[in-house]
Structures are given as C-alpha cells and as structure tokens.
Nucleic acid binder design. Structure first.
Lengths: 230, 230
DNA sequence: GTCTATATCTTGATAGAC
DNA sequence: GTCTATCAAGATATAGAC
C-alpha cells in the first residue's frame, strides 16, 4: 500500500479552506503540518519548521507561544473539520426526502462513513497529525480535540444503536462494529494519495458499502457492481 | 474507546516468548517497547530507556550500537511475529479437513483476520511501535520490516483474489477490501486492553465475522448470535 | 558488562536591535 | 513582525577505569 517506509503517501500539504490563519501564522501551520506528519512532533524541530515556513526560528514565537501550540492548533483543526463533516453528513442523511423509519440508520451510517473516509482522503496529513500526534500534547492542550473525538464516536454509536433497534442492522456489539468501521476509515489517511487509481469518492462509496455489509445490510445494487481494478 | 489522549490503552509491556534476548539486552528491549510506544522514538531518550531498564545510559551501547538499533529490533520483531502468525493461520485453514474448493478462501480469510486481530490484541505495544515508528528508521534498518509487511499484504490479497475467483467473495476491488480489513485490525492495538469487557478471541471472532460480511459472505450462524454488550 | 565522566551537538526558547 | 545572537538544557554517543 504505497511507500511502506513513510507514514503516509506523498500528498500535497493542504489544510481546510477558511480556517487557516492568513500570512505567516498560516505558513507556520502548513510547515508544521508537513513536518509533524512526516517526522512526528518530537522528530521535527523548531528550526526545521522555521526553514519550511521561510522565516527565522525566533519569528515563530511572535505567532505561537511554543512548539506545542502549533501542534495543538493542527490537532484541534483536524478534529473540528472531521466532526463538522460528520455532523453535516448525519443531518443531510436524516433529513433526506427518502428517509423512512426503516432506512434511516442505513442512510445515516453510509453518510457517516462516506464523510469519514472523504475527510481522511482529502486531508491525509492533517488526519495523521490529529490522530497520531495527539499524545504529544499536554492534557490541557489536548482537551478540545479529545472532547470532539468523544462526540464523533457518539455519533457513530448512536447510528449503530438506532439501526439495531429498527432491525436494519444485525450487529452483536455496537462498540466492536464502531471500532471496526472507524479503524478502516482512519487508515485511509496512510495509503490514499494521487498515486492510487481511485478517486476520493470511489473509496468513500466503497467503504460505505463495506460498512453496510459489516452491519448486515445486504448490498443494494448487486447487478451494478464493477469489475475489480486490482 | 479508552483514554483518547494516549496512543494506546494501559497494557502490560510484553514481548513474544522465545524471541526476546535474555538478560540486560532483553530489559533494554522491554524498556524501549514501553517508552517508544507511549512517547514515540524521538520522544523517548536514551536516558529514559536506561532508567526504565535499570542501567546506566552508557551500558546500553554494550548491547545495541545506537538508539535506532533498539527500535529496529522491536520493529523487526513485531513484523516477524505477525507474519509468522499469518502464515501459520493460512496453512492451518488451508489444510483443514473441511476445506473444499468452495469454502477454502472463506476459511482462510477468517483465519487470517483472526490471527491479525489476535496479534494486535496480544501485543498492542509492539504493534504500535512496529506500525507507527517504522518511519523513524533509516531505509536500511527498516528494510526487513518493509519486506515482511509486503509479504503479509500479499497473503491477504491472494486470499481475496482466490475468493473472488471461486465466487465465494463478492468484491469489486481486492485492494480496497484489503485496506479496509487491514485497517480495522491494525486499530485494535490502540483500544484493546484489560479495561475492555472483551476477551481477545471474542474480538478476533467478531472481526473475522465482520471481514466475511465485508467481502459478501453471508453469516454462517445467524441464530447463534449473542445479544449486544454495549 | 557496567560504571563515571565528558565530548559534541541540537534542542526549545529568550533578549534586544531594527 | 522579523531579525541576530545567545542561553540553558537536553540529546546521542564515546573514553577509559574497574
């Protein structure tokens, strides 16, 4: 699955639009994103980040009070972006015109997984930093992200429980199903990239179909299935 | 899913039996396992490791030529353990008395996933180090693990392709299915622990069932299903 | 094999001029 | 806001006695 030596595939260093601070602060964030995702928090130095941002290392402290705060900003940003997408996906799926009591959870789970996978395929570096470097933060600086993560988990569990109650899903254990579904989506950030023969929405659709099968929902269009690509 | 701040749950620091060097070299390896898994390679210092191993930092160099070599030993060990388990699982499933052309791939996929999940639940620290700290190694020291990882991936892909050919599996794309199945198993190392109300084999069985559903194999015993625990 | 002591370098962060 | 210069602490690794 790609270059197995690196933490993730060669991807453009991108942050969600609208939320990145302008000017130097934003360039520092981009530099941190790139270096933290590749070398980890402790593996990237203040000077490395400064060089990548095109500034002197001392200038950095005019924008962030410490190296840790750069990471905290990225981790928070990543968790906010994901949680916002999950929430919007849920709302859209729940309010859809075709939603009934018998298909609500199915559509919501598909929307949730699609959003989850899309986010990880769209911002792989941010996802890796938010997931794999959270532990480098102090409890205080990690708190906002931890809270968001718990809420995101709750969204998934709620949909699973709902589907189990309506009978849409045949699942023994909601937690284990959530862990499996979340795990397969999280990992996308590590292998997805422009070198793959897939578009983001192809992966998202396929993984949503995987999730539905996983919870016991039969495939909706068995005839439409494409041939294998790999 | 556990303490979301840390990289993994509170688990005993264990290495596979028989492969750990005796004496001080082994204690260094255990110390490295604990500290690398919690703080990452660059987040744990030589002195930290020495203290955890109960020796002076200089003594360490009588056993390993560099800090990087400690990590390399752990990463290699982790990949060898996993690959060995996958191979043995495949052989057992393939040679089983009930194996036929129509069920071979199904049994093999279940065995593969069970072994994968069991390994990650049995040695979570080792799995986290082997997976998440591989990038900190030079290309040379990472090479053995990278090679093993490619072989493990091939095992899974081969089973998927076989099941697609025999008609056991209804899968569009073997690579995406492999990525999903591998991802859900890899993540187990991050949340499994003694605080969870599951035994290792319960998780392994459930995840194997998830994988079979994911590739389109209908549940074998729908009546035997237990009630949800969470 | 294990220690004390130390060399050498890099780290995160600060002081102060412009 | 950005720089030069620098501090104090920490890093990896080595030398040499026992």
């Amino acid at each position: 699955m790609g270059d197995e030596k690196r933490r993730l595939a060669a991807v453009a260093v991108e942050l969600p639009e609208g939320v990145t601070p302008p000017g130097t602060a934003g360039r520092i964030l981009h530099a941190g994103l790139q270096l933290f995702s590749e070398y980890g928090f402790h593996g990237a130095s203040i000077r490395d980040i400064a060089v990548a941002a095109g500034i002197n290392s001392a200038t950095l402290y005019a924008h962030y009070p410490s190296k840790e705060h750069i990471l905290a900003a990225l981790v928070r940003l990543g968790h906010e972006e994901l949680h916002g997408r999950l929430q919007r996906a849920l709302v859209s799926a729940g309010d859809g015109p075709g939603a009934t009591a018998a298909t609500g959870a199915t559509a919501q789970l598909a929307a949730l997984v699609r959003a989850h996978v899309t986010a990880h395929a769209e911002y792989p570096l941010l996802a890796v930093v938010a997931n794999s470097e959270l532990h480098a933060l102090s409890a205080e600086l990690a708190a906002p992200a931890v809270a968001l993560r718990e809420q995101s988990t709750r969204l998934l569990l709620a949909v699973l429980h709902k589907g189990m109650e309506t009978g849409e899903f045949a699942v023994d254990d909601a937690f284990l199903a959530a862990a499996a579904i979340a795990g397969m989506g999280l990992r996308v950030a590590h292998w997805f990239g422009p070198h793959q023969p897939y578009r983001r929405d192809e992966v998202a659709d396929e993984f949503a179909a995987f999730a539905l099968r996983l919870v016991g929902v039969a495939a909706e269009k068995p005839a439409t299935r494409r041939r294998s690509r790999r």
